[in-house]
Design a protein around this nucleic acid. Sequence first.
DNA 1: AAGGTATCTGAACGCCGGTTCAGTTCAAGC
DNA 2: GCTTGAACTGAACCGGCGTTCAGATACCTT
Lengths: 196, 196
Amino acid sequence: MARTAGSHAETTGPRVREAAQRLIARHGYAAVSMRQIAAEVGVQAGALYLYTPDKQTLLYDLMRLHMEELLATVEALPPLDDPRAALDRFARFHIGHHLDRPEAVFIAYMELRNLTPENFAAIEALRRRYEEGLAAILRDGVARGAFALPDLRLATRAIIAMLTGVTHWFRDMGPMGRDEVAACYAEMVLKTVAAP
Amino acid sequence: MARTAGSHAETTGPRVREAAQRLIARHGYAAVSMRQIAAEVGVQAGALYLYTPDKQTLLYDLMRLHMEELLATVEALPPLDDPRAALDRFARFHIGHHLDRPEAVFIAYMELRNLTPENFAAIEALRRRYEEGLAAILRDGVARGAFALPDLRLATRAIIAMLTGVTHWFRDMGPMGRDEVAACYAEMVLKTVAAP
DNA sequence: AAGGTATCTGAACGCCGGTTCAGTTCAAGC
DNA sequence: GCTTGAACTGAACCGGCGTTCAGATACCTT
């Protein structure tokens, strides 16, 4: 056998990435084989190499696309003058965006160590750029007296860790809805950095 | 060749666990082979099976021992009446304890999905018991008017996520010392749940 | 000194890993 | 309808995987 009926690169390519994302999020990069990904797509393992040069690049592309989408979305938001409003929106955006993409988020936070040093550096740079967006909000808030915090860098990381933590336990069908959860987190974040 | 000079179960056993902890923390459970662990100990792969029935149990034991030590330590702390003092101490304890054991902490948070369902349930139960310790502090603080928070369970998880996040970036030799970092976090945590 | 046991080696087992490639089939353009 | 190239198969390559076990050696007891 060879080429199968109804096969197209435009559909198979994305399906490879989707299958890889689903499997890697569930079992981890090292525990997932190219043959498993291929089986999920309904294809032999060799065919995957029409869509990725190797397994490592497949992982890297998943993480890069996720980070690029995250940055593009957050940087497209219209600026807000009030620091409190900006922080509130950031918290709600972060939670909403992450809850919409649990698999990509999981991979982005768990598979960093499986990247080659060069790929790691590239992802890390994107991550820092996102972090800097929050840091700018906090810095502005401190300068204008709305916020008070012991250390800017530390507060930035603490808030992101707190917000991202929601993806570890949130499940639809739970007692709280997404917006309700986001509102609670936004309230706590604002208190965390509020000026006395 | 066979038994090597100076070999003792009391020294090799712990060395196996230490090597496994170091390697798994660095590369991940699925990416580390029994032969790599054996090489780190200075032994052939077969010898590991004198100290663990299989690779899965080796991982499980690492996580169980870590959680048991964490629980034993936190539950041995003398009670504090003031909710604010209790929360402050919890935050500092959590950060200090976790910064002392970066490898065990990393494994405990990253390798949950590589546990068998039974082992996962056991670890999850220990984790919930730890979480409940913090929840009790918050609940008491709310009842006595010291704290105000939108949702107890959510606040508990948010605080633990925030505090544990420190292990992802903290490095000795950085600009801040451990106690300084712990103090900053404690201050932020207290503000997060403070009554208005 | 001798015997017994604890400790480890080294080789083997069967299986699965990522990756390559010659060959086969489908689909689209002329 | 024919040709051409894109899409895929199936088998192979070489290496590593977790695990087992018979045999060899070191240590401890007496």
